[in-house]
Amino acid sequence: MKLEIKNVSKSFGGMQALNGVSITIDKPEIVGLIGPNGAGKTTLTNVIDGVHNPTRGEVWLNDERIDTFPPYQIARRGLGRTFQVTRAFRRMTVLENMMVPAMAINPTVSKKEVLEKSWDILRFLTVEHLANEYGRGLSGGQQKLLELARLLMLDPDFVILDEPFAGVHPKLQETIYGYIDKVRQEGKAIILISHDMDSIFTLSERLIVLNFGEIIADGHPDQVKEDPAVIEAYLGADEEE
């Protein structure tokens, strides 16, 4: 498994959102991605995911160049993401939500298989009682869990979580921690974008800091925490939170 972001730059009109960003992830690990608002975190996610094409640079997934691919092709190659604002399919049931990615990536899969897998994941997230609820009938937290569950149906190698803890109460947060743990144990890599410093420092095995579209630190969280450039740009994150 290998995700390589090679010297990616992205500008919108006159604005430079990303500037020469290079990241390589080639093993299962939890990578925290932090930075001030407007630093380019979501733009980077959108570029990786195929929503935008980079202005310069390349993105490679498992030795295949993907920066020109549309999002659905990237999803099929094993890279999944969530959105900052939860985007569950409202007029479809939870099970139907789960079926979509499973059937999208595998034209011949049987409905039975898909349902089995869905139930497993829903049970793990302790939301199996919601299986036939409509997306619009779920609470905000439940919708978040649905997004996470749905993502797993892609069987991705790489998972990008964009602000998974935003507005989430402690119990739910625990469930999400468990989710991230399990996904990591199953040999996947997770890019975790969050402003919640507690979670970031609890979970991350590696920490990347983005500022004004550039990477200013990339390493072990304890090291990065002490990095003067990071402290100047972004931390005292401890004080901020």
Binding site: D49, V51, P70, P71, Y72, A75, R76, G80, R81, F83, R87, A88, F89, R90, R91, M92, V100, P101, A104, I105, G135, R150, M153, L154
Partner: peptide, 13 residues
């Protein structure tokens, strides 16, 4: 429901 989310889920929109 959501074209972008569908694409992110692998649907050939």
């Amino acid at each position: 429901e959501d074209e972008e989310a569908a694409a992110a889920m692998g649907v050939h929109v």
